[in-house]
Write a protein that binds this DNA or RNA. Structure first.
Lengths: 228, 228
DNA sequence: TCGCGTATAATTGGATACAATCTACAATCT
DNA sequence: AGATTGTAGATTGTATCCAATTATACGCGA
């Protein structure tokens, strides 16, 4: 039997698997768009063989973060600005739809747990922990939608979030702050708690599309500069 | 310059890679939901080592067709009926949105090529070639939407299509025919050609949601039976 | 007879070695 | 000089072997 040993808790924000580590390095920008991922180099760096590396790369390919071509290796993908814009518009459509269904079924517990995540989100924002902010941002949105019971929609939204997280982080770095988003989150939660469905959905739409506009503008400017 | 050498054409409907072969066997129902995929068995069957099998399984896991658990192997996933229903509703929302944007930008060439795909679709239907039907059905829809230039939306729709194709094929097998869908496809194309955007979108919505209702009903009945 | 613990078999995860393929550069030909 | 071809290096794809883990079957005792 297990002795009085402390449980092997998985710390949440520290990448454990090879895939998670590489994913985090891509999302954080340490590994940049267009960089080649050499299996041998990664294997040596993590002190494993190339096999686990290949598995990790396959998974990253599935997420759309890298592209693998036979006998040519894996390259970190880059999403054109127009497609980043498109992804935000997809978010607006899907999240508004799922939020509408969620609000009607939300329990007090749902509200409370969403508020708890929001508090963590505020904390990470106050500390300037961009990595946690990106993760918690999606966690908050997701928690709001869970009452809808739309598993497949959430899966797709999670994939979209993974795609855009790189640019959300970059946006935070470039603009140094997103006070507006913080306020909008609180307002959104308040509207949900009041069961003001239409107002909540409208607010969410503005929140997402507003972020889209700001982020896309910053991204265009960033990409226009030669090599800042 | 290139001599009179014939191009090395890849035949489209014949699975070439291991992943494509396994995928086709899952979609066709030869490998069923809940079946375990034993690496050794597959490796021997295809006369390769287990390495390529593992790569293929990882890719299938990425598509959502199989689920891999460490040291426990890979199992063919099964989508609950409610989630199949949800996927069709996602299709309705996303495809209607993208069709609206596409119709305005369609050229005569777009129409003509969509019609060409539709003819192939009719042919495969006449021949009872369910495998080709499933593939061409999506190809037709996709061709209609391409003018919208919504790359990310099409990617997501392609993923959804892959998930539901198993059940679409099953539906065709069970109900022995989809004359209604054939007519609706022609009507949809006609409305697009006439640039009747609202009518086309409304028709598409009915087409998808109608298919949803029929398919879900059949699927529920099929799954309710013990082991037919 | 049922539950439990152990031993054995089956299966997967990873490491190393080798073969196949691609890229880059230099030498050669027109 | 420009284009083409050949060769060397780097990189990926696959096979084989071993370790780690899980599932199964058997035996034991209550």
């Amino acid at each position: 039997m297990a002795p009085v040993k402390s449980r092997p808790i998985k710390r949440q924000s520290v990448p454990e698997t090879l895939r998670e580590s590489l994913q985090e390095r891509i999302l954080s920008g340490e590994i940049r768009e267009g960089d080649w991922l050499i299996q041998d180099a990664i294997a040596e760096e993590y002190d494993v063989s190339r096999m686990p590396v290949r598995e990790a790369l396959r998974q990253l390919e599935a997420c759309g973060l890298v592209l693998m071509r036979t006998h040519r290796g894996a390259i970190v993908t880059s999403i054109p600005t127009e497609q980043v814009e498109e992804l935000f518009e997809l978010r607006a459509m899907l999240e508004c739809d799922v939020l509408r269904q969620a609000v009607a079924r939300m329990t007090e517990r749902d509200i409370a747990e969403a508020r708890a995540v929001l508090n963590q989100l505020d904390a990470s924002y106050a500390q300037g922990d961009i990595g946690s902010w990106g993760r918690l941002n999606w966690a908050f949105h997701r928690r709001l939608y869970e009452a809808a019971g739309r598993v497949q929609t959430l899966n797709i939204l999670q994939g979209i979030n993974l795609q855009i997280e790189r640019y959300v982080r970059l946006h935070l770095l470039l603009t140094q702050g997103a006070d507006e988003a913080v306020r909008e989150h609180h307002e959104l939660l308040k509207l949900c708690a009041a069961r003001a469905t239409d107002a909540a959905v409208a607010h969410l739409r503005e929140h997402i599309l507003g972020t889209r506009t700001n982020l896309v503008t910053a991204l265009r400017a960033h990409r226009a500069t030669p090599a800042a």
